[in-house]
């Protein structure tokens, strides 16, 4: 389309201009605009490690939560500002892929990664870094006060004793919430999953907007059980919160954080270098500081407060199915539970 060509042309011209400027300023250092949703604490560490390995490339982070980042990327569909996304949920990247926004690229050494961390197309449009895995945060002090026993499985959460003591993220505003719902449907089958969620809904005290909040609420005693993922649980425990991190026995949904090149980037070569590096063993060891599960098999060291066998709890997750059915699932969820979101006495 003419418009796209013009845009690309203009972007290229601008980029060339920018490159010329920076080339005269510093010697041939390429600057990459990198969109990310990784934790704020990790930003500097990742940047420094990468730049140490690639002195000719400078990373300029643009960071926001997954939902906002995805919205931003989609909003910039016709005028992309990013060169690379590094550390955004794979489901989000699939949305971008279906808009034709990603540049397929098979980074050097991609074959060494666990295949479930690599896009199914050849060449792949995205490659994974690490995973966050659904888990329950369980406040032992509050549970004791109420005389509750810890849940072992997802289905346990529908027990009447937990009524009003479970908090989970709203899948309509939280990626974590959606990964829970999509995992339940994939695990239990459509009918059983909705029946389970109907039961769960009876016990829910609140649906939060973000995925880590339920765990933090459990940590602060605002609720007993937070449906969340493992990472905030480990952090809260480190900070002294009286919680246990429980992985339900049916298995856990999970989301990969992944890397991709934005189609039309003027810095393709540097972008490819970054993606190449992002799947190296060195990079994966860097991810392992915060994440128990990384894409490079066999190198993960256990993270404090988390069990070693997390990968075994991860279900087979069909990202493509999740992305293509996302709208329908969310609409159904909203119809069932949001309408009933009346105040509870």
């Amino acid at each position: 389309m003419g418009n796209t060509i013009m845009t690309t042309y203009r972007a290229a011209a601008l980029a060339a201009f920018a490159t010329a400027l920076s080339a005269s300023a510093a010697f041939a250092q390429t600057e990459l605009t990198v969109y990310t949703s990784i934790e704020a604490v990790d930003l500097d560490r990742y940047k420094q490690t990468f730049e140490a390995a690639n002195p000719d490339i400078k990373v300029n982070w643009v960071r926001d939560s997954t939902g906002v980042m995805t919205a931003k990327l989609l909003a910039e569909k016709d005028n992309p500002q990013a060169d690379v996304v590094w550390g955004v949920a794979a489901t989000s990247l699939l949305l971008l892929k279906s808009e034709g926004m990603l540049e397929p690229y098979a980074p050097a050494g991609v074959e060494k990664l666990d295949p479930k961390f690599v896009d199914s197309s050849t060449p792949p449009s995205w490659v994974g870094m690490d995973a966050y895995v659904a888990a329950l945060c369980y406040n032992t002090i509050e549970a004791e006060k109420l005389g509750l026993t810890p849940p072992k499985s997802w289905k346990d959460l529908t027990k009447p004793e937990y009524k009003g003591h479970v908090v989970m993220p709203n899948p309509n505003s939280s990626g974590t919430g959606f990964l829970d719902v999509s995992a339940w449907i994939q695990m239990f089958g459509e009918d059983d999953a909705w029946a389970f969620m109907d039961g769960l809904h009876e016990n829910i005290a609140a649906y939060t907007h973000s995925g880590s909040k339920p765990c933090k609420m459990a940590a602060a005693g605002e609720t007993v059980i937070g449906v969340s993922f493992e990472f905030p649980g480990a952090n809260a425990k480190k900070a002294g919160a009286p919680i246990d991190i429980i992985f339900p026995e049916e298995g856990s949904g999970w989301e990969a954080e992944a890397t991709a090149i934005i189609a039309g980037t003027a810095n393709l070569e540097a972008a490819q270098k970054l993606v190449d590096w992002s799947i190296t063993k060195e990079a994966n060891e860097m991810y392992n500081v915060g994440y128990a599960v990384v894409a490079y098999p066999g190198i993960a060291k256990p993270v404090e407060h988390l069990p070693e066998d997390i990968p075994s709890k991860m279900i087979e997750n069909d990202f493509e199915w999740a992305a293509n059915n996302r709208k329908a699932i969310l609409a159904e969820w909203q119809k069932r539970y949001d309408a009933k979101s009346e105040p509870k006495g």
Partner: peptide, 25 residues
């Protein structure tokens, strides 16, 4: 309402949910 509204939906939060949560501009 974003902070304290819980499950009680109001228009202003709906905009946020639609745009940020669902990218439904």
């Amino acid at each position: 309402p974003k902070v304290i509204g819980g499950q009680y939906n109001v228009l202003a939060v709906d905009i946020y949910k639609q745009v940020i949560g669902q990218q439904n501009f």
